[in-house]
Amino acid sequence: MPVQLFVTCLVNSLYPDVGKATVALLERAGHEVEFPVDQTCCGQPSFNGGFAAEAKQQARQTLDVLDATEGPIVVPSGSCAAMIIHHNPELLHDDPDYLAKAERVAARTHELTQFLAADGDPGTPVAGAATTTYHASCHALRWLGVLEEPKRLLDDAGVDRIELAGEDECCGFGGLFSIKAPEVSGAMMNTKIDQIEASGAEVVVGVDVSCLLHIAGGLRRRGSTIRVRHVAEMLAGDAE
């Protein structure tokens, strides 16, 4: 059975390399990868912002596209996976047709590292000795319980990983929150970056590009040499 890739809008437009690495990992694990080309945005930004009508439009589009496919759906983003798994059924509770679709699709959807870990992928040793630390993105952690899976995958791949103090503290992104309250958001990000710098890591990794782009933007502003990578890129051997 094929695996369906839901790549997310941010990966599609900002970080296609994360999508390519995801394809490489899935194929390496022996899966046939399909990419439904009519996918767009899952609607998470609208949903989180309180724009239910817009979120429903995007959720229905996503469900129409994904429900027409078969096999597990893999998402290289904790927050978008949480949207599909948890929030779509909530959002569409008063729409019987789409609620059924939402529940079917939710049952097939997996965050990437949880999928790979459950798959029993032994991992391929990653070249390079950069010291790496893992930031636990909030939605992946608290809505999906993603924490040990990415760490185990990194460890199995022989990545030199050190723990991040405060790994479960929010980086302050929060989508519209960072636009509506940039000062608080920025203060949270600076705390996170202080923690990353204090860890001594050369690379910080995560499972959600939205948090990663926020952290990367702050690190660059500081002139830091610490690199930011998605776990998929690390596992695919693309840490540079």
């Binding site: 990966v11 599609n12 080309v37 636009i179 990000m189 926020h214 660059r220």
Partner: peptide
Amino acid sequence: LLRGWRIDRDVPAPAPETFNDWWR
């Protein structure tokens, strides 16, 4: 719209090619 961001972070640019185009 992102002016508040400028205080302490840079903003990533779109990649030269979308994942969708790469896939196709």
